[in-house]
């Protein structure tokens, strides 16, 4: 399974960015291969309009199964994510990526469809 996180940094200790559209990075964890990669999203965090759909598009290209974030995407981004059949998990806004992953595995985070 591939899991995406919105984060403020590039490693497991990075705090989760509670925002979706204007997150600094998207962290991708491929469980099968045990590989963690970081995708820079700072170019999009500077756009004036439509940060949500643009970030959703970037995420879509990575084909994750799950997205773990803080508050959850707004209407526009949510619509785009629906298209990609990505499960949205929220409530990780104050955790690090590692903590968020563990919390998700323990079923402690909320899913939203």
């Amino acid at each position: 399974m591939k899991i995406a996180f919105t984060t403020k940094g590039t490693d497991w200790d990075s705090p989760i960015d509670p925002r979706f559209g204007r997150t600094d990075y998207i962290l991708m964890y491929d469980e099968d291969k045990d590989v963690l990669t970081a995708i820079d999203n700072t170019d999009i965090s500077e756009v004036a309009h439509g940060a949500g759909p643009r970030t959703a598009q970037k995420l879509f290209e990575q084909k994750p199964d799950v997205l773990i974030t803080g508050n959850g995407p707004g209407g526009n981004a949510a619509r785009a994510l629906q298209q990609g059949n990505i499960k949205i998990v929220t409530g990780a806004g104050t955790m690090t990526a590692k903590q968020a992953y563990d919390a998700y595995k323990d079923g402690k985070l909320k899913s939203r469809k």
């Binding site: 960015d17 509670p18 925002r19 979706f20 559209g21 309009h49 508050n71 707004g74 806004g93 104050t94």
Partner: peptide, 12 residues
Amino acid sequence: GCPVVSSLSGAD
């Protein structure tokens, strides 16, 4: 509108 949406994003 848009500015208030942006203000709220990331709030605890």
